[in-house]
Write a protein that binds this DNA or RNA. Structure first.
Lengths: 223, 223
DNA sequence: CCCGTTTATAACCTGTTTGTCACCCGCCGG
DNA sequence: CCGGCGGGTGACAAACAGGTTATAAACGGG
């Protein structure tokens, strides 16, 4: 389950992202409106959390633009007391709102409710085949082997592969998901990251049995 | 997946075509209404992008004519503010519309949504006769034989032939689709590529039964 | 501020893919 | 009969992509 969080306040953004990741969601972050739209197009998240106050392009505009393409649930973040903001947000097709400050617990509850309402809810798949990913611990377990700690980037890579277990994930998609920016040339980073991840999860890293190179990308074998 | 783009503005047409080609679609272009209908009949695209403002024969007429024969998804391009245009377009059976100016990204998102809605969505392997192409895996399967891996260029060549299965595809079209640039002279590349592809998919490469040479180009036999 | 960890950059090696060349053959017109 | 043309074939080199190792830069917790 992928959730896009767009907020220009880095602290708040990270707080939200952390909370959602804890809860087992795959989180995509954006610091401003254009970035949000870009990540939205690239990732097709299942839900969007959108701050109204963003420099440059407001949450309203982002919401409006998203609504032209998609019926994805949108949850807006507002400051208390801006009544007309709420009205406008809901007019533009937002599905719910939350006034700051709010507790992570509340946010989570609202998100669950939204996902349930939109019928997308389905226990976050943290496992496929012999691979079990514990997002809160940044750890992965292969079969019954003891858990291995993963770094942030390794986790994101594995999360993406796990979300598409059994299918090939295009290198460009992986690049965008793990690093966000970087359009073209940076295959080298992915190469390294895959290498490091293989060292951690493969029984024999030189003959990968789980994380396979395939066509134009990589895939996680599940059978 | 074939998409017909009809727009009299050459710049916009090429921009759209480029974006779609990048996204892996096979693009057919038309500069006016009659050409659009002609290409539509000849190519049976999976989706049509239609500009309303075209000299001679308007997008409305084209849409109307197409709708007599086909339920293919149609996306209309309008200029902002022409409210009644929209109504008319949707009346005539267009499935979605987009007001200019729009970003290539938005167009792509809409097209994906339309294809998904119409149940044609990619991911479904491209197939004709005994040939089944799995684009994400870069693999082709002939009848029940085990899948064969294809290189990037082989894949593009086969994609083009498969999209026009049974009909001859002009060498120049193949050159443009596979390599993009390159003026006429480079037949040698195509010759080689065909040769390599035959080694992979023909039972007897020296007596091709699938990928046949035919006047001015190549074709894929399906029956 | 320091130290260990994580991430980025670079270089090298390998096998694969692609571009190029030379040459073959069958066909056709002179 | 001959020579040119177009497609098919095999060989080879350049370019490329992925794997590996080493090292530098950035980060983050104490």
């Amino acid at each position: 389950m992928k959730i896009l969080v767009a907020d220009d306040d880095a602290d708040l953004r990270e707080l939200i992202a952390f909370g959602l990741a804890q809860a087992g969601y795959l989180v995509i972050k954006a610091a401003d409106g254009p970035a949000a739209l870009e990540r939205f197009a690239a990732e097709s998240p299942d839900l969007v959390v959108l701050d109204i106050n963003m420099p440059g392009m407001s949450g309203f505009q982002v919401c409006d633009t998203i609504r032209r393409d998609s019926r994805v649930p949108v949850l807006m973040l507002t400051v208390r007391g801006e009544e007309e903001d709420l009205v406008r947000a809901l007019d533009l097709g937002a599905d719910d709102y939350l006034t700051k400050p709010f507790s992570p617990r509340t946010l989570l509850a609202r998100i669950r409710a939204l996902l349930r309402r939109s019928g997308v809810e389905a226990g976050a798949p943290l496992a496929a085949g012999r691979v079990t990913l514990d997002v809160t611990e940044h750890a992965v377990r292969i079969g019954t082997a003891p858990p291995v700690r993963l770094t942030k980037l390794e986790l994101r890579l594995l999360q993406m592969l796990l979300a598409h277990a059994g299918r090939t994930v295009n290198s460009d998609h992986l690049l965008v998901h793990v690093w966000g920016h970087r359009s073209g040339g940076d295959r080298q980073l992915l190469k390294q990251l895959v290498h490091r991840l293989r060292q951690k999860i493969e029984a024999d890293p030189s003959a990968p049995s789980l994380l396979r190179t395939s066509a134009a990308g990589y895939k996680l074998l599940v059978d």
